[in-house]
């Protein structure tokens, strides 16, 4: 009699342990504030707003009754991981995509997400534009300049496949939509990082997606070849600073507008300020050295980024400190184009 009773006890214990281990700490299916997928990290910024980091450029994900709104789609070689991360957040259909620039690490997943979104809707919705967007059920919105950068004149090879091109473009300074219970403003910043930069302001969530105008990992990439400028970058940052609101008058609570940069950690108005001030101070140093009659090479050697180089600088990679100094120098000497 005793042996079966102990065996019963063991079974009960095992069952209890199993139940305890299976019990979730929080609500079922709810993501923690930060989780990872194939080395990508998913950060919960607001109850229905996430940032996917680690794929290269940051990707913003807003979720609601209308489906998924994405800002940027990451680089092409990480599209499967990014898609897995989005699916970890929600099974809702992809509905609306905004590109902040034509950079390859921001638009690489465009076609994949567009097709995934279209596949979520019935054929009629995709065939009849009036139902949703010009492209059918899903749209990719970007400034007109982004489309120009992603395409090529007839007879030349396009840098991106046609399926990845924006389906909706705008020339005016601002475009807006209302999805998932909030107004979403897409604002063009002329001649900043490039000539096609857009930032996306989610008004109810109080989140700004800044793209590469704001990069917490390096000096700003002022791409003069693609229409970028120092003055435009500063103007764009000033506009974002004016849009973002910190915790006032109650400074004891660290709340306020969140700003998702093109790369690196999430920021707020103070981080935008620090970034803008850094650019202004470097600009002033470069101008001072120009005024002393120095050449570009002499100015590079004088290290006008001193004080910020260990934090934002790089001697290797696609955007080095010297490239930044040269961009500032050329803008100051040759003027804005």
């Amino acid at each position: 009699m005793e042996f079966p009773a102990l065996r019963l006890a063991a079974v009960v214990v095992v069952l209890c342990v199993g139940v305890l281990n299976a019990a979730p700490w929080g609500p079922a299916q709810e993501l923690a504030s930060s989780t990872s997928t194939s080395e990508l990290e998913i950060l919960r910024i607001r109850p229905n707003f996430y940032m996917i980091a680690g794929a290269g450029a940051n990707i913003a994900v807003q979720v609601g009754v209308d489906g998924v709104v994405l800002v940027d789609t990451g680089p092409r070689n990480r599209v499967d991981d990014v898609m897995a991360a989005v699916r970890k957040i929600t099974a809702a259909p992809i509905r609306f995509i905004v590109n902040t620039s034509a950079d390859a690490d921001h638009v690489g997943g465009n076609d994949t997400f567009l097709q995934a979104g279209q596949a979520s809707f019935d054929t009629i919705a995709n065939l009849f534009p009036r139902n949703y967007f010009l492209s059918g059920a899903v749209a990719i919105l970007a400034h007109e300049a982004v489309l120009r950068r992603m395409t090529a004149p007839t007879g030349q090879v396009s840098p991106f496949p046609a399926a990845a091109w924006p389906t909706e473009t705008f020339e005016a300074g601002r475009r807006y939509v209302y999805l998932n219970d909030e107004g979403i403003e897409v604002v063009h910043h002329p001649a900043a990082h490039t000539d096609g930069d857009a930032t996306v302001f989610f008004r109810r969530s109080d989140v700004i997606v800044a793209g590469d105008l704001f990069d917490m990992t390096r000096f700003p990439t002022i791409d003069l070849v693609r229409g970028g400028s120092l003055k435009g970058t500063l103007q764009a940052l000033n506009r974002l600073i004016a849009t973002a609101i910190p915790s006032l008058p109650d400074v004891s609570r660290e709340v306020g507008t969140s700003v998702i940069p093109g790369h690196g950690q999430v920021g707020d108005q103070f981080d935008l300020l620090d970034y803008r001030d850094m650019i202004v101070i470097v600009r002033d140093h470069v101008q001072d050295l120009i005024d002393k009659g120095m050449t570009l090479e002499q100015i590079k050697a004088a290290n006008p980024t001193h004080g910020f180089r260990r934090r934002y600088g790089s001697d290797t990679g696609e955007w080095t400190t010297e490239m930044f100094v040269e961009a500032v120098y050329r803008n100051l000497v040759e003027g804005e184009k």
Partner: peptide, 28 residues
């Protein structure tokens, strides 16, 4: 607790993990 130009500092004793390196850095 806070001071007029110093924010409150929470010291978590419950063994929670550090936030992601991509998480917002705060004044506290």
């Amino acid at each position: 607790g806070a001071w007029h130009d110093k924010l409150p500092l929470d010291i978590w004793m419950d063994g929670r993990e550090l936030p992601s390196r991509y998480a917002e850095h705060t004044r506290s």
